[in-house]
Computed example of a mutant assay.
Amino acid sequence: MYLYILYKEAIIIKSLQIGDLIAKVPIIQGGMGVGISRSSLASAVARAGGVGVISGVHVGYDEEDFETNTLNANLRALKKHIIKAKENAPKGIIGVNLMVAMNNYEQHVKEAISAGVDLIISGAGLPSKLPSLVKGSKVKIAPIISTSKACKVILKMWDRKEKMTADLIVVEGPNAGGHLGYHKEELKNMDSIDYDKEFVEILKVTKEYEEKYNKKIPVVAAGGIFTGEDVLKYINLGASGVQVGTKFVATHECDASPEFKNTYINSNKEDINLVISPVGMPGRAIHNKFIEKVSANRPKITKCYNCLIPCNPKDTPYCISEALINAVKGDVDNALLFCGSNAYKVDRLYSVDEVISELTCKL
């Protein structure tokens, strides 16, 4: 067991160990795209002792050739932001979040490895090929799952096909933002989801592979975690740490526009609603003019960014790439504003250090 001592506050905090990587505080910053978490936010979290994560979804949205050469722009930017984050946090841990549903997923994984990333976190599908892609490197791998069933499937698959297991498991609950691993009807009836019970079951599944591979596989809780009490709850439940997204959006270091950050600060609880993305996955977002507009009339889609495998521009209700790019740039009336269920609790801008301090205050 590794312990990190904050001498000024005389607090002893358990560190998060992922193989040979040790984060001084058990906090992983969630990967948020498009462009919400890039090198600025990720390096700030890593310097503060947590795990900083860059989202790989259209990470090159502001490259000069993004519109004409989207894939190369994204791969170039992914490498650039990983290198920059590593330079700005030379002793920290930098990860990337790459959705399995992305087109050109394997190319993004390979680019992240070549750039020197420490950890690859993958959800929005089962990352069946991830172990083979990282073989021969020191890069750690982590699936994002929501159920013990999914945990069994992916760990069994990696064990059987690759003779490998996970280095970390992220358990995303129903209170997270972005794309969620639940059916819309489940999310409408939140009482039907016993996340804590499912988390304990996932710990049991993981233990089997810890014993087989003689290694510790940390399991972290994610989704709706906002306070020090939340963090302590899941540590006491058996978590090795937590993943947090929403609270890091409203930080000075976050890569998003001030306008996007202010939508969190100015939101009310009733503003946060469930939405269905163009690929049929439920998510959570702040209600705005854009949601009203696309609910009334399907906008004309003039360009396809070829971002997600299941998306077909002929029948998609709107272009999710355009909507998320508008968000990060600050055109919030024409944007999809993904957020976690507790976004309305954000009341001001914080520094990353303040957020880390609040999250660990009960440990």
Results as ranks from 00 to 15, higher is better:
I82F: 10
A256T: 15
A296H: 10
D196S: 11
N306F: 14
K138E: 15
L78I: 12
L336Q: 01
I265P: 02
V294H: 00
K329N: 11
T147G: 04
K261T: 13
F226S: 05
K14P: 00
T206D: 02
P299G: 07
T316I: 14
N88V: 11
N175Y: 15
N334L: 06
S257V: 09
K135D: 11
S341M: 09
G52D: 14
N268I: 04
K212H: 03
Y213E: 06
L71N: 09
M102S: 14
N175T: 06
F66N: 07
N326C: 06
S43T: 14
E292S: 15
R160W: 06
P127L: 03
K345V: 11
P282N: 04
K80M: 07
H81Y: 15
S148V: 03
D191L: 03
E63D: 13
H183S: 11
C254Q: 03
W158Q: 00
E198V: 05
S267V: 12
E186R: 00
E210D: 04
K138R: 11
G223Q: 09
L349F: 07
F66D: 03
V96H: 05
N288P: 07
A150N: 05
Y264G: 03
W158P: 00
S37M: 07
C151A: 15
E87W: 05
D196P: 01
N297L: 11
S240Y: 08
V219T: 12
V244R: 04
Y350V: 04
S267F: 10
E358H: 03
M1R: 09
N262W: 08
S341W: 00
G31W: 10
F248T: 12
D230Q: 05
L237D: 08
